[in-house]
Every structure is written in C-alpha cells, then in structure tokens.
Design a binder for these strands. Structure first.
Lengths: 237, 237
DNA sequence: GAGTGGTCTAGACCACCTG
DNA sequence: AGGTGGTCTAGACCACTCG
C-alpha cells in the first residue's frame, strides 16, 4: 500500500476531530493559514482537504469569516464515498445492520436498475441482503450485488454490524470513487412490506445505485427500499 | 459586475461545447496540457474547470487516459447550481414549464420542510407554483418560496418556459451556491393527484429543498411533488 | 486595517495507461 | 517510452467580513 496522500490524511484527521466533538457545531475551524502551519502543508493542500469536508457537509466555508462546523442532521444521510455508504453523523441515533441474506454466489438478476458491463456479467455476482434499523425501526432493506472477481473468501466473512465498505477497503483494497442513482416512489409489495414492517401498499422510496470503484470494470450495484414514514432521506449523494 | 473568473469562464465554454455536441459521448476531451495552451491558463485552473464538469457528470476523468465525455441520461436530472435547477441534458426530451400560481407576496407557510431564518421570516415570501411536463406527461409540481427582500418587480415578470434561475441571476444577481434536501415517499392526495394527472393514493416522491444563495440570509425554498411512474429522478443533487 | 477564504501562476514530480 | 491526469510547493494578489 502506498503512502496516504497528504490532503486525504488531513481530511481524515480533521474529519475525526469534528466527529469526535473536538469542534462543536457552529464553531469555526482553525483558519487555513493556521492549519497550514500546524500540518506543514501549502494552501492548496489544505483547501483540497477542506473541500472534501464541505462536500460531506461537515463544514461550510464563508469568505472573510472562516470554516464553520455544521450541525449533523437527524435522518439518514448517504454520504461520503470515503467512509460508510450510510452514515449517521448524529450520535443520538442508533443504527443497526442485519444481514438477512448472507453473501452467496449466483447469476446476475435481470431486473437491475443499472446494467452491469460485459466483464462483470462474465463473472458471477455475489449477492447479499441486509436490513437497516434506526432506533429499532426498520428503515430500509438493501440488496447488494458485487462482481465475483478476485473476491476470495468474501462469502465467509461475517458482516453483521460492521461497515461493508470498510471491509472492502481493508481486505480487498476496493474503494468507492463515484456513484449514480435513480430514485422513484412505489407502493410496497407484500414481501417488502413484511421486511420493513409496514402495510402492503404503503408508499416507499426505491433507490437504485451503481457504485463505481477504483478497480476498472468493477461496480457495486445496490437496490434499496426505504420506509420514509418517520425518517426521511437526507442529502442523498 | 466583476470580471468572470477564469475557471468559470472555461467551465462555461467547455460545457457549451459539450452540450452543443462538439464533443460527442464517449470521445475524449483535449488533454489538460492542450487546453492549457489553447486557453492560456495553468494546470490548476484547467483542473478546477474540469472538476466542475465532473461534478455535473458531463465528463469522467481517468488517470492515464483522459477526460471522457459522458452520455446524457434519460430522466430528470436536478443538477448544476450554475445553470438550471432542473435540466434535461438529453435533447430528445421535451421539457415544458407552466406557471400555475403566478408569483404573489404573502406570509410564509408553516409546513415547510426547512425553517426560514429570522431575517427571512421578517420579510414576507414570494410564492409561486409551477408544473413541469416531460414529453407531454406531467412529472412534477413545485412550490417555490423566495424571501421578498430587494426583489422589486419580481411579481410582474413573465416566467413561463424560461429558467427561473437564469432570471434570478441576470436580473437580481442571485445565484445558487449550495442546497440541501429531504426526500420521502407519500401517497398523492386529491389535489396533487389532479395536478399530476394520476390516481389519488399513487405513490409519489416528495422533495423539500433549501437552496442557499450568494446573498447572506437569502435562501430559496422549494417543495416538490414528483410523479415517478414513467420517469425517475436521476442523480439528484 | 487585519484576517479570512478565493483565485491564479510557475514549476516540479508522481501514478497510471497505452503503444 | 511518452502522454495523461493526480499531487504538491512557493508565492502572489484579490474579495469579503468585521472590528
């Protein structure tokens, strides 16, 4: 593994400091010039790191004032390609993940929102299903499909309550670089309604995503059914 | 008005060239060094402009290869703070806008997804409603609320089928800098169902957005009801 | 006026892809 | 090997906010 990039390291450090509560919401970060001195980098490097925090909505920059730490929203944010796909930035929320269909290798399904490319189709797919609960309420069900290319022993991993994306990163050196998504509303069918513990026919949000990774011809496909009765999706990206 | 920033000018120029079809999907843009020579700027400036195109998903960059022009998706993309809030990048789609509630000044409604700040609340709100159709199908209804601060004569403007955001930019020098949003699914009530020409109870997507502008204490609030039976929302951001 | 973030240049080296 | 995008430095000036 190569040396971590300076801007990325800086981003990670500042991110941790914010999330750990060292800088509380509303306060301003040290100025760019202070950070420059503290971490011994030049302005563009600092700016790069800070811009990542802006993208993640952890801070807002105001010319002439400074970088202001943002309050973390209630709700489910799907943010940050770097860390977790689904992250609560708010400590008051208890997020649980339950794998209800353990990873298994099989053919690609046909009804995917995005079409896998030829190289992916040639390999089989690793599929898994998981439920997410927020304060004991089931908020979404997700099906994931991962190309079975150099993914040795993946099916043997125990994934409960740990970040899938961290695992992919640390064990297989796979990281998300980009994503695209389609969103629409449907009425819950019986199967999904049962999983989400809502009435059949309730309006739910459908989300199909293609997550592009650092490997070429290796995308992760995610299908999501979200119960938005009490929690809404916030700043999906 | 100040001189346009170089990176912004470059972004605009390249964007126009792509959208006009000068570079077709799949082809690669001139390399950074070529662009640098052609427009007489340095690499960081080019990179800034290209990164805006990446954010807008008009291009994808691949290290060692180049910047590849992306195909424009079918669907409704809510992209680009710079240009239009809702933009079809695909020429085959016919988008129509119809103002069904002309702009009028009144108090702020109570049931907004985001709470206006005190300065905005002190002023009244300019409200308007509009319908968007895509190939003759009504796809969404949007309510907009704009603080009535230095917005002289706004209510007299004719806004049919022109970009509201272009108007705000050119007439009032207001541009969108940032946005946040909440998304959930609901069953259409009678009123909305009628507007969207769907059955009462059909699942639709609800979207509440706060659009932050370059003016301080001046946010635009948008409430959106989307019919996703035939068109889905794509890459909202 | 002092300090902040925003833009820009000039130049260097690295990592990745393709022939 | 040569070209592409990715990272980084050193230094400059501009635009905005606030006391």
């Amino acid at each position: 593994m190569l040396k971590e990039k300076k801007y990325k390291e800086l981003y990670r450090i500042l991110r941790t400091r914010i999330i750990k509560g060292e800088f509380i919401a509303g306060s301003i970060l040290p100025s760019e010039s202070e950070l420059r001195q503290a971490y011994e980098v030049t302005q563009p490097t600092i700016r790069h790191a800070l811009n990542l925090l802006v993208e993640e909505r952890l801070i807002k920059k105001h010319q002439g004032k400074g970088s202001i730490v943002q309050p973390r929203p209630l709700g489910i944010g799907i943010i940050s390609f770097e860390g977790h796909s689904v992250t609560s930035q708010n400590d008051d929320i208890n997020i649980q993940t339950k794998i209800i269909t353990p990873p298994s290798i099989g053919p690609w399904p046909r009804n995917l929102g995005f079409t896998p490319n030829d190289i992916e189709l040639q390999a089989e797919a690793i599929g898994l299903g998981r439920l997410r609960t927020l304060n004991a309420e089931t908020v979404f069900f997700e099906k994931l499909l991962i190309p079975n290319i150099q993914m040795d022993e993946f099916c043997r991993l125990n994934l409960d309550n740990i970040s899938l994306y961290d695992t992919l990163n640390s064990k297989y050196n796979i990281s998300i670089k980009n994503s695209e998504q389609k969103i629409w509303a449907i009425a819950a069918d019986r199967q999904v309604a049962k999983l989400l513990q809502i009435k059949t026919g309730s309006p739910i949000v459908r989300l199909e995503r293609r997550l592009e990774t650092n490997r070429t011809d290796f995308n992760i496909y995610s299908s999501l059914w979200a119960n938005t009765e009490n929690y809404m999706l916030y700043n999906i990206s």
